[in-house]
């Protein structure tokens, strides 16, 4: 029987965020916004959902006088992403 796809990751923007963070140690809010072409508001909401699930961490600090928000993936986020990709592969093989 096919495993159900993780609903938290099965959305375009959240999956894009996770894919970016899987490939680097940390990325800034500005960088993720540029790559995903999402609005700042929507991106913030989706980041909060991923933080609440424990998939990512968000660190807010200052670089000089400018605020800097850095996001990074957690171990459970990495595991969830890997499981999601495995489940996707299973789906595609069946189809």
């Amino acid at each position: 029987m096919l495993k159900e796809l993780n609903p938290l990751l099965h959305s375009q923007l959240r999956l894009a965020i996770m894919s970016i963070l899987m490939n680097c140690e940390e990325a800034s809010f500005v960088y993720i916004k540029e790559q995903t072409q999402a609005t700042a508001g929507n991106l913030s909401v989706q980041l909060d959902k991923l933080v609440a699930a424990g998939y990512i961490t968000v660190e807010k600090k200052f670089q000089g006088k400018k605020p800097l928000t850095l996001c990074s993936i957690t171990d459970s986020g990495r595991q969830a992403f890997e499981e999601y990709v495995t489940a996707l592969r299973d789906y595609l093989e069946v189809k």
């Binding site: 796809l5 099965h10 959305s11 375009q12 923007l13 999956l15 894009a16 995903t36 072409q37 999402a38 929507n42 989706q46 996707l88 789906y91 595609l92 189809k95």
Partner: peptide, 9 residues
């Protein structure tokens, strides 16, 4: 990018 649900592909 929006809050859109995707298919597997």
């Amino acid at each position: 990018m929006e809050e859109k649900r995707l298919n597997s592909q």
